[in-house]
């Protein structure tokens, strides 16, 4: 994964989108989605490497640490997916739909964060006692 390749693919995608924008607007939308997906696929191997090393780090944190690490992983995943789709929605004029996607992402992230809060409060309570 080198950044130069990513930049080239991005510029190529933007060129295709611009070409298609005036002759076939709906295909321009699909070209944008595909460019985003191609770039994402390129950096996927990088992300897996990073997360594997993180998993190794979280081994020492015991049972709780593992579940918290998995939740953090999920939150990062949801955050990224919603940002990806909201960006595409905003690109093609439907800001309200993009906002809705972001709201849904925030709600699901918050729902996942609640066990962590409970955990923190429990450990603080245990320390104070």
């Amino acid at each position: 994964m080198d950044i130069v390749k990513v930049i080239l693919v991005a510029l190529l995608g933007v060129m295709v989108v611009v070409i298609l924008k005036d002759i076939k607007p709906e295909l321009a939308f699909l070209a944008a989605v595909v460019t985003g997906a191609a770039i994402l696929l390129m950096i996927l191997s990088e992300i897996t490497g990073i997360f594997d090393s993180f998993k190794g780090l979280s081994e020492g944190a015991g049972g709780e640490g593992k579940s918290i690490f998995v939740t953090i992983l999920k939150i990062v995943g949801i955050g990224y997916l919603t940002e990806y789709s909201a960006g595409i929605c905003d690109d093609y004029g439907s800001h309200s739909i993009g906002k809705k996607v972001q709201l849904a992402g925030k709600v699901s992230i918050f729902a996942m964060a609640i066990p962590i809060f409970a955990n923190i409060i429990a450990t603080i309570g245990a320390i104070v006692k």
């Binding site: 693919v9 995608g13 295709v16 070409i19 298609l20 076939k24 295909l27 070209a31 595909v34 191609a38």
Partner: peptide, 18 residues
């Protein structure tokens, strides 16, 4: 790498326009 899909989309778009 799946960069060729982008070219295919461009091709189909231009073809359809013509």
């Amino acid at each position: 790498m799946n960069i060729d899909i982008i070219f295919k989309i461009a091709g189909v778009g231009i073809l359809a326009a013509v």
